[in-house]
Computed example of a mutant assay.
Amino acid sequence: MDTPVIDISDVSRTYGEGPPALAGVSLTVRAGEAVAVLGPSGSGKSTLLNLIAGLDRPSAGSVTVDGLRVDRLSETASAKYRRARIGMVFQFFHLLDDLTVTENVLLPARLAGTPRAEARRRAADLLTHLGINRHADARPGTLSGGERQRVAVARALMNRPALLLADEPTGALDSASGEDVRELLTALNADGQTILLVTHDPTLAESCTTRTIELVDGRIARDTAGVLR
């Protein structure tokens, strides 16, 4: 529990001549935490998420996730890192409608080279654990929004990631489906999954995370863990 899953040190990110998207941000997230990052549009939330995911690089500072210096990775190594160490859940699911639910969930394992029988057992276990095993052979387009997000979460967890990143996971859902996803994230964290959630919604943050960070103009303005920067 003492080893940080996320360790960001004095990170800045600038684009062109404009103000920095992030300015000297330092952040530590330990195993088992569920952390929400809040802030208005333009506050730096998406930039922070992209740096953690290895989709962007800082202009200064370091980004370490699960003991790996993400900011130093090549494109190929970054792709491998995303497959092996993090799972990502998005606002609009990004499921493939021409594949079944099981086939969508299996994709990360196939990319990672997991043996077929082992991968299928893992997928079946996840679908059962997340309460959507009855939809294993269905196409995502036949499911409700909440069910599709559960499929997306199962896919994100397929390779047993150290960190689950969730980007506005209830943003495209109605209130009932949103509540379903909130309960799911809470349950996953209770089982020990480390989660970083980016959202505009303070209700989502308060209901399923243990710590809230507010970004304003690229800086941490508030951290309910008690660290202000």
Rank of each mutant, 00 (worst) to 15 (best):
G145W: 09
Y81R: 07
V65H: 04
G146L: 06
R57W: 08
L165N: 03
D223T: 10
A117L: 14
S43H: 06
P19N: 04
L55H: 04
E75L: 14
G44N: 04
R57P: 02
V227K: 12
E183K: 11
S43I: 03
G226H: 12
A172Y: 05
A34W: 03
G32N: 12
R110H: 09
Y15A: 10
E179Y: 11
T100Q: 07
S177I: 08
V227D: 08
G44T: 04
A60H: 09
L68F: 08
T102Q: 14
A176F: 13
V37F: 06
R160F: 03
V5Y: 04
R57M: 02
A123M: 12
M1P: 13
G87P: 08
A60N: 07
T224K: 05
D180T: 15
L126F: 13
I220A: 12
L73Q: 12
A53P: 00
D223L: 13
A154G: 08
I86A: 07
D10M: 01
V89W: 04
L197S: 10
T170S: 05
S144N: 08
L48K: 02
R69D: 15
L48T: 06
S12K: 00
T186L: 15
A162G: 10
V181L: 02
L197T: 08
L55E: 05
R121F: 14
L22S: 07
I52H: 04
R72E: 13
L27T: 10
L99E: 10
R120F: 07
E75I: 10
D217Q: 09
A109F: 03
R57C: 10
G54F: 01
R182I: 12
P115N: 01
R150F: 11
A123I: 13
A34T: 10
G16H: 03
V198L: 02
V29H: 05
T14A: 12
R69T: 13
D174P: 01
T199C: 01
T170C: 00
D191F: 01
M88G: 02
R57A: 12
L157H: 04
Q91S: 14
I86F: 10
A117S: 10
L22H: 07
M1N: 14
S144E: 06
F90Y: 15
V89Y: 05
T186Q: 14
T186C: 04
G24I: 08
T142V: 09
